[in-house]
Design a protein around this nucleic acid. Sequence first.
DNA 1: CGTCCACGTCTAC
DNA 2: TAGACCTGGACGG
Length: 429
Amino acid sequence: MPECPELHLAGRFINRVCGALVFAGGVERSPVGRGPEVPFRSEAYGISAISRGKELRLTLSALDPAAGPPPQDLVFRFGMSGSFRLCPAAELPRHAHLRFLTRESPPRALCFVDPRRFGSWRLGDAWQPERGPCVISEYQAFRENVLKNLDDRAFDKPICEVLLNQKYFNGIGNYLRAEILYRLKIPPFEKARTVLEALQEQEKMKKDPSLTLSKNVKLRQENPDLLELCHTVPTEVITAELLDPEQSDNYAAFKNWLQCYLVPGMSSLRDRSGRTIWFQGEPGPMAPKGQRPRKASRKKSPELKTEPEAEPSPKVTPRASKQRRRAAVKPPKSELKEEEKEEEADGPRKGHGRGRRKATAAPALPEVPLGVRRSCRISACRGKGEAGSPCGFGAHVQPLLCERHLLPPPEGQVRGQEELRQGLATDQG
DNA sequence: CGTCCACGTCTAC
DNA sequence: TAGACCTGGACGG
């Protein structure tokens, strides 16, 4: 669960739940984990955590500093699927790549779980130097870092792409960028510098000395700018406790909170790095060409078919071509070995084993009209009792949204922001 | 069964 | 600026 709210909540979880626990022994690492062995061993140690943007630092400290080893720091990134869980050491979840064992009997394990293994850890206390200040915990520094560097070529890009640049927006990810831009109805492919320079102007107005302090505060709260939202939107997720690491199978509140990302009725496009940006309204001047905004509808393709959608340009989306190529070029390297290792590392599979795909020489297809891929893959309403999936909230989003909004919004008409306001803890009164 | 898609970086043309 | 790196859920045939 990997944008700054998830990292922050993971840290809070570790401090609250593990703060009272005593850990013992060495740190276990699965052979496929994307990080080094941890050279730390103590017969009684504690674990504390702190997050910064999309990184999380753990500190292992012997309870008796005089007798034990010196403290060991570790900095994690969660990739697309990383998380921390505390569970009985005898029932490790699959993909628990790093484990800290408690001294209890029976012991439990604090696990870094990461099915896709895009996450990693490094030894030492250093944050990744290229990453900017945290949008949550270092708001002022974050803001200044952006506004002082608007001449950087990085801001030549569309705002939606710049929001993923961790040098300036450490902690923002794909769902947050959509939610933030949506609150201000900023076209995602407006040039970043244009958006942010305008913000500098507003800055001056807000510093108008004729305003009383309280009026100024009110003005700011009622008219948050883009950079403020980069702080308050993720903070909403945290303070409203939408994502509870102890209830990792319950994404109900979070799904309910999303106003734009994955929401039926919203449009989406691929940005220049192939990531899906969700938005409402105009895409903006720098929108990639050859792609038409796609409406996410609750229903699946049949009605889309009726719409004549012959793609005028033969252009293929980057993603499409990418995936086709991957399918075609599939040289599995020494599979058996990998499979065994994974088996050992991640424990027995729960369900039906899915045999590895053979390298079927799927021929590289010629370009396919976009319309073919255009159909909405968001599932239809399924009601609540759906079994929880081990990771990812995407699969859960739809049912809940449908619960709340029993009817889909008519095409083209989207719920107003106010209607959706959740009265979350950002109001400060 | 196969294809598409996912909360993120990295590095190699 | 494409891939590469991965697993697994949803969906279509």
